[in-house]
C-alpha cells in the first residue's frame, strides 16, 4: 500500500508538481515577469496545477493496492497497432 507512495516515479511526479506549486505564485507575488499576457498565462498555470493535482489523485486511486511496478511499466501491448486490435500486428510500426 504505502509502497505506491514511495515509488520512484510517483516521488518524481510529486516533486515536479511541487516545484510548480512554489514557482507560479512566487512569480505572481514578486512580479518577477512583466508581460502583456501575464495574467492569462498565470490563470492557465493555476488551471494546469488543478488538473495535475486532480490527475495525480486519479492515478493514486486507480493504482491503490497494485504492484508499484505499474508506474514504470509502459504500454503492455507492444506488438499491436492500436489497443482495440485483437491480433498482433504483422506490419511494421511497432518494433520487433
Amino acid at each position: 500500500m504505502s509502497g505506491n507512495w514511495t515509488n520512484r516515479w510517483v516521488l518524481i511526479l510529486i516533486l515536479g508538481i511541487l516545484i510548480q506549486v512554489i514557482i507560479y505564485p512566487t512569480v505572481w507575488i514578486f512580479q518577477i515577469f512583466t508581460h502583456e499576457y501575464f495574467p492569462d498565462v498565470f490563470l492557465i498555470s493555476l488551471i494546469s496545477l488543478a488538473i495535475q493535482i486532480g490527475g495525480f489523485y486519479t492515478i493514486m486511486n486507480k493504482t491503490k493496492g497494485m504492484d508499484p511496478s505499474i508506474y514504470g511499466q509502459g504500454r503492455p501491448f507492444q506488438h499491436k497497432l492500436r489497443e482495440e486490435d485483437e491480433d498482433v500486428a504483422t506490419r511494421k510500426p511497432t518494433f520487433d
Binding site: 516515479w9 510517483v10 518524481i12 511526479l13 515536479g16 510548480q20 507560479y24 512569480v27 515577469f33 498565462v41 492557465i44 498555470s45 488551471i47 494546469s48 496545477l49 488538473i51 495535475q52 490527475g55 486519479t58 492515478i59 486507480k62 493504482t63 505499474i70 508506474y71 514504470g72 511499466q73 509502459g74 504500454r75 503492455p76
Partner: peptide, 26 residues
C-alpha cells in the same frame, strides 16, 4: 511558463486514463 503549464497536463492525461504511462508523465 505558458508552455510548461500547457504541455504538462496535455501529456499527463494519458496516465490519468492509463496509469501504466506514469513514468513518462513523471
Amino acid at each position: 511558463m505558458a508552455m510548461v503549464a500547457l504541455s504538462i497536463p496535455a501529456f499527463a492525461f494519458y496516465s490519468y486514463v492509463r496509469p501504466y504511462y506514469t513514468y513518462v508523465t513523471s
